[in-house]
Nucleic acid binder design. Sequence first.
DNA 1: CTGAAAGCGCTAACAT
DNA 2: ATGTTAGCGCTTTCAG
Lengths: 336, 336
Amino acid sequence: MRVTIKDVAKAAGTSTATVSKVINGSHTISKATTDRVNDIIHELKYHPNSQAQNFAKRASMNIYFLTRLDKNIAFENPHMFEIMSGVQKILDKRGYTLSVKGVNEKEACAVVEQAVMQNSADAFIVHASVISRPLSRLLIESESAHIVIGYPNFESRLCWIDTNNHLSGEIATKHLIDSGFKRTAFIGGRAGDMISWHRIKGYEDALKEASISVPKTFLKQGDSTFHDGRRMMLQLLKLKNRPDSVVCANNYIALGAVEAIQSQGLSIPEDIALITFDDYPFSKTVEPMLTVVNIDVFDMGIQAGNYVLNKIKKPNFQVQSYTTLPELIVRESTRK
Amino acid sequence: MRVTIKDVAKAAGTSTATVSKVINGSHTISKATTDRVNDIIHELKYHPNSQAQNFAKRASMNIYFLTRLDKNIAFENPHMFEIMSGVQKILDKRGYTLSVKGVNEKEACAVVEQAVMQNSADAFIVHASVISRPLSRLLIESESAHIVIGYPNFESRLCWIDTNNHLSGEIATKHLIDSGFKRTAFIGGRAGDMISWHRIKGYEDALKEASISVPKTFLKQGDSTFHDGRRMMLQLLKLKNRPDSVVCANNYIALGAVEAIQSQGLSIPEDIALITFDDYPFSKTVEPMLTVVNIDVFDMGIQAGNYVLNKIKKPNFQVQSYTTLPELIVRESTRK
DNA sequence: CTGAAAGCGCTAACAT
DNA sequence: ATGTTAGCGCTTTCAG
């Protein structure tokens, strides 16, 4: 076997207890022995076995990240992985390991239950797509440190973090207004699309606040696809008194809208300005480059990680919700 | 504390050794006691503490996934996460945990070294972006089960898995040829882009094999951007004897090319057919929908996971390289 | 300030 | 077929 704490103790002429204390930075050990032990540790290239450490301490230094991990998810939901990356970054900094578990709602419960019983995880980061009432109960009753990524769609005492799409909608619209546009339209997703819905509400509130009123026909809703985005944009362009700017609820719609505008020989932003959400790499490859209201999801992951680590140390530290602020990235598509 | 093996032993009137054997499915225990013990286990809701199990067995049931995890990576490299998802799926099936480590080349070495010393990982899955000679040496000398995702750009005895871009290029080109196109062009990335380079070679070989020769001007190379894709496509269209079909080395270029073709009032595939690689969701949102030569990266992850698990069991099972086959997804853009 | 010793929960010879 | 017992490598009282 590798060099163990015993070897170090023997070589240093101390007990293993002393070595252990040195490793863990106890203040009850004299500088002299501390130095001696540390020298030996270096000399012997001793690395404490963290498995044994954790076992003895009844800790795991391990945090579970529960999410759906089905085929194509990386393409459909890169945000989730971006958050994961942010989380990993700060966990790593503090010596924690991130274990990724691909689960559905039901499996999530089983995994958490198991992990709680054998404390193989010090905390849980749960993507909203796998949260459920039973899991909520489990997390709360076991008093597990946790954070849900995304607002759970039911009442609970869970701690969660989410983006503020309403605010994003407001910021996008306000930017257009501030840039001097007076007739702003919105192309959104279908009724069930909550993200789009919140952005629409933000759009409406921003208009209201600026005392701007636009025709009801300026609000379009359809599928979140290139095709439907184009279709809806074309409808807007056919209006007798067409908009001078448009907010697109997402990238797919925006791409279609751009195409529609250019197909009519109009140009962005001269004839019509366009803004959308989320800074996908594609946003930068489109011509003109799109102004965007972005959420820094990596940073959101960092926040989630920090929260959960904090919670492990001080379990009574109680916060229920976080919200990450959107940021406006101005590019050509709204530059008058 | 939770219910332990001792509680079960006591309740069942056996020794802990017997319980342990039952848990691990030993065949030396009578059906009678096996049943009795299992009943007690259920009754007491006993869950073996896997930390203790692993510690005693000197195993970890843990596999590290080493990769860069910098900001924006989920948007820039969704493939990596798709592979990770595939890996996770099969590891989970076999009771292994996937621990994700965001590292650079140097950190990767440190992490592996540490993990080897305290066997906190039974295997390593290493993304090519963090592989290095020192890490290669480490992996080989410590005889660690491992697989590298992507072909390492240096000679080694590492085991790796990669896609075959040469073959992809051939398949794409052959599809065009088989569809009756005779004048196929290629728009690729710059010289340093190895992925593009292999695809170009595949294109050339497919033409050669079909005894088709095209003008040298049919091969364009530039930046992998919408902008440059469009620029190069426009050049192709200006040729006195323009191509009837084009292979685009990647999605960014393809998007620009589509735009260029349509801006000239030409249509796809009637005037010019177009094929590209990798089935991003965006590929389906473009009009017309793009025919694509795809790599099933999720499946690639599954293969990588299977290999590595296999390797853990039989360390002498020696395979050095895997290659995942591309698949052709025919859509409108090449349908004559 | 340091050390002895009793675990942490489970496994794995080795006996019986 | 089952039990005894000695660890796995480290931490943590509790004495000294």
